[in-house]
Amino acid sequence: MAKVPVQFTLNGSEKAEFVESGTTLLNALRDKIGDTSPKGGCHQGTCGACSVIIDGELRLSCLTLAETCGGANIKTTAGLAEGGVLHPLQRAFLDGFATQCGFCTPGMIMAAKVLLDRTPNPSREDVVEALSGNVCRCTGYEPIIQAVLSAARANSQNVA
């Protein structure tokens, strides 16, 4: 199987790898680069556990080919805390008991981050819509929605 070179920025660091043509970004991140924060729950674009941010857009890394990500700026939940300080979303998920088994959490946080980057003061409906592609089978949706709203409030207080 032919290997193709791929180079992108992951959480601020330059990464260069050779991957088999057809390798998903999810598998490249997890198996080649060692960032296992995106999870493979379905490998068919239905659960949202593999969500990452590519050039500011929320993407399902299980449906994105690594070879299409040349030059991209990719962010994952593993790179969200800066200098050991949790991002307000991470803090809010922690304080608000918004994790149960934790498997959906990195994807939820990515989806919430894209929302807050664009809509700093979202309504509850905005949050529900933004998380609608992410499955939490422990059915802990309410604390997750509350955590995102709480992180938005914390952000706006910091800005003010």
């Binding site: 960032d35 924060s37 939940t77 593993a78 998920f93 922690l94 994790t99 990195p106």
Partner: peptide, 10 residues
């Protein structure tokens, strides 16, 4: 287990 969950380290 929450700190591991929210940082993707679990």
């Amino acid at each position: 287990d929450s700190p591991g969950h929210v940082t993707g380290k679990t």
